[in-house]
């Protein structure tokens, strides 16, 4: 399948304008790019857990979805869509449905890493043919920037604030992409909206997979990260270059790096965002060091998995 932009712009716009996401939102960029990877001549059912994307795209009596869409609750988008997929499989077998359908969840990191993890794990383990996309902005943005399992250590959020006795989030984030990969499903990938061609190619593979697929997409949020709104794509690009968000895929168990990068120090990336501003005070030097060490260790681990060493 083509990843030429001239071809991609011919694709249907499954997400219509008129949604109420913030100006400069990374989530809708992720959605648009993922859906550029939908094969021709298939129908879609899209699901959201509760979150920014959901509340902004389905405000009754308006829907921004140019296709079938369901939201039921926060922790269960994977389970909800697994039911839709199961219905499709049997109704198709019974001859009641003729068309080919694909199923996609777009969940935030809260709905994926935290509250929705169990339902996601169950869905991946059961082998439903659906694509689960995490639009990861590293905190609960819909409720006003609270820490999640995806929030980077040292990051300010409204529930990991900076204060006399706190220097932001104490704990490191969990490796959700590796958790998904541990389900031994056909396709898992980590992607970034900045690397659109890589992302679209991953979406194409995910839609083609004969089973569950999981894509974790870095989708910066300027409200939560504290940077000017026009820099959303730039932030994502810097994260990739600092190797704090490496781009890779796990295709039928084989790990591959999908973007060549010249690894940059993480400080340069952190400096651009207000959520890390306090880390540049003298007393927080150790945290900066610890973040870099975490990034280095994770990067080494990844290189080993991808047999790049």
């Amino acid at each position: 399948m083509s990843t030429k932009l001239a071809d991609l712009v011919q694709k249907p716009q499954y997400l219509s304008g008129g949604h109420r996401l913030c100006a400069g939102c990374g989530a809708s960029i992720a959605v648009r790019q993922i859906l550029m990877g939908v094969p021709d001549d298939v129908k879609l059912v899209i699901a959201n857990p509760t979150g920014c994307l959901e509340v902004s795209t389905s405000i009754y009596p308006y829907t921004a979805w140019n296709t079938s869409y369901i939201h039921s609750a926060f922790e269960n988008a994977a389970a909800t869509l697994s039911g839709a997929e199961a219905a499709y499989q049997t109704l198709k077998k019974q001859g009641k449905i003729k068309e080919d359908f694909r199923f996609v969840v777009f969940g935030g990191d809260g709905g994926t890493y935290d509250i929705g993890l169990q339902a996601l794990s169950g869905t991946l383990e059961r082998g439903h043919r659906l694509v689960y996309v995490c639009y990861n902005n590293e905190a609960y943005m819909n409720t006003g920037i609270q820490r999640s399992g995806a929030t980077i250590m040292g990051s300010w959020t409204t529930t990991s604030p900076y204060g006399r006795y706190s220097s932001g989030k104490k704990e490191n984030r969990k490796d959700m992409t590796a958790i998904a990969a541990a389900h031994n499903i056909p396709y898992v990938a980590q992607a970034s909206i900045s690397h659109w061609r890589d992302l679209v190619r991953k979406a194409q593979k995910a839609f083609a997979a004969d089973g569950p697929a999981f894509i974790n997409v870095l989708s910066p949020c300027h409200r939560g990260w504290r940077y000017p709104m026009e820099k959303t794509v730039e932030m994502a690009k810097m994260a990739v270059q600092a190797c704090i968000w490496p781009l890779y895929e796990v295709e039928n168990g084989k790990w591959n790096l999908t973007a060549k990068v010249k690894k940059q120090p993480v400080e340069g990336y952190l400096k651009t965002q207000g959520r890390f501003a306090h880390l540049f005070q003298e007393e927080n030097k150790d945290i900066l060091k610890a973040i870099q060490e975490n990034v280095d260790a994770e990067w080494e681990k990844l290189l080993n998995l991808c047999e790049q060493k």
Partner: peptide
Amino acid sequence: TNMIAVESEHSAMSAAIGAAASGA
């Protein structure tokens, strides 16, 4: 019947909702 042996009752009802909303 396509039987889904889900991982919790919350997912049982969630999957039931997804399936019923799909015309099953």
